[in-house]
Nucleic acid binder design. Structure first.
Lengths: 243, 243
DNA sequence: CACTTTACCGCACGATCGTGCTATAAAGAA
DNA sequence: TTCTTTATAGCACGATCGTGCGGTAAAGTG
């Protein structure tokens, strides 16, 4: 047998090059050649791992979705139930530079999905997973008796929470809000969901709370070594052999 | 003087061709040639009205924003203040086929704006205008004493309403919600803002209520004949002279 | 009529696109 | 060693892109 490379690992590496191109130059700058240049490979090498451009994009889209799902389900959360809910939801929002980049990539794919049914299908799964997560969080608060008196069903509350989270995210991505304001509004909304108490650190419940998984949500283990950092931070530009 | 055409009118006609291409084939199918074919003009004719592709896109983006701003400020609203608020906000949301198309176009531009600072600037103005509109609506409810007891500022309530509106819209555009569910959730949220009463038609106030303008919001008059229907419905395909 | 100005067409250029293809390098198996 | 299989490079093809530009039709003025 000749030189063997981990195909799945290489595909992830190339997908991350797609992310960097999208984050830096916009989604309409993604081409086989630009991704090849960004990753340091040749166009011919790319075709060994993705037979078509659409396949590359679909993989990069799925991967960024998996990335946040994995982070949600592997992060340990501390604090009151309300703080846990807040921090879980913030995992999907542009709360810092890393998540801003991540969210803008996911958002770019979302727009691309308006004209690409294959991408749209992947994204609907993501939305369904996020709604299920919101519903589970709300149900958890309800079971703990922390929800303020309400007339709506928990499903209705979850739908609105989900919409608020995505709406706030879009507003930050569009430059209409900054991250602090976004977080403040999320906090304010959660403050209306539970009793009045603000972000009070009193009444803390230090035991890490279980977080309902967002989707099929396979853990960090799917053949690889665990949390090795799928982060965008691995932006090493490989140098070419020639030219 | 030779043949004179209304430049602004022609530019609008071409921008509507851009909208149709985006709605039918996706934003990445917009090129000078496809827009020329869609509008029935030649590529050379296009260049008489837009010297560059970016200029064409920017104009089409601004125009779709103006279109909803104009509709908001020219529609007469009837019903209780709460119903007025609902109907005003629904003007920007994919509540029916027409508005769905319109919203998907605006959304496509939004993603395009992530990589184009000029477009991003236009869109920030739009978001600011929409926030101001939400704030004015909330203040109107507050002045009428219709707001349920709340601890938050009206600005905070407006921010969250704005985010909910856009979040629900995105969820419909992504195929995650249908229009009815979206409207139901908007209604439910407004039901929490004001007193408990649902969408009850009792206690109606039939006098058309004034709607605070969304932006600089010039009326429908800006040199043209008024409400002549800037609608996407004017999809007449012009036949070429030859070929 | 001729003349001027605007509207419009459509070709041409160079760049870039996705993708098929061949040639070569590398690495274990025999 | 030779052979077989995989990995990678990079060229070539046809299509499409944005845009510049010259030519022609039309409409009003003199």
């Amino acid at each position: 047998m000749p030189k063997i490379v981990d195909h799945d690992l290489r595909r992830r590496e190339l997908a991350e090059a797609v992310w960097r191109v999208i984050a830096r130059d916009g989604v309409d700058q993604v081409s086989i050649r630009t991704v090849a240049a960004e990753s340091g490979w040749s166009t011919g090498a790319l075709r060994h791992y993705f037979s078509t451009r659409a396949e590359l994009l679909a993989f990069a889209c799925e991967l960024v979705i998996d990335k946040v799902a994995t982070r949600i389900s592997t992060t340990r959360y501390v604090g009151s139930p309300r703080e846990v809910v807040r921090d879980v939801l913030l995992q999907t929002m542009p709360a810092d530079a890393n998540r801003h980049t991540e969210a803008s990539i996911a958002f770019a794919f979302l727009a691309l999905g308006l004209g690409d049914p294959a991408l749209a299908r992947v994204q609907r799964l993501h939305f369904t997973g996020m709604y299920d997560l919101c519903l589970a969080l709300i149900r958890d608060l309800d079971a703990k008796g922390l929800l303020a008196p309400h007339t709506a069903t928990v499903e209705s509350l979850a739908r609105r929470l989900h919409a608020l989270v995505d709406g706030l995210s879009v507003h930050v991505l569009a430059g209409h809000l900054d991250a602090e304001e976004m977080i403040a509004q999320l906090d304010a909304y959660l403050g209306e969901l539970v009793g009045q108490p603000g972000t009070s650190r009193a009444h803390r419940m230090p035991a890490p709370t279980d977080v309902p998984s967002a989707r099929g949500a396979r853990g960090p283990e799917d053949g690889r070594t665990g949390a090795h950092g799928t982060g965008t931070s691995s932006g090493h530009r490989r140098r070419r052999k020639r030219s």
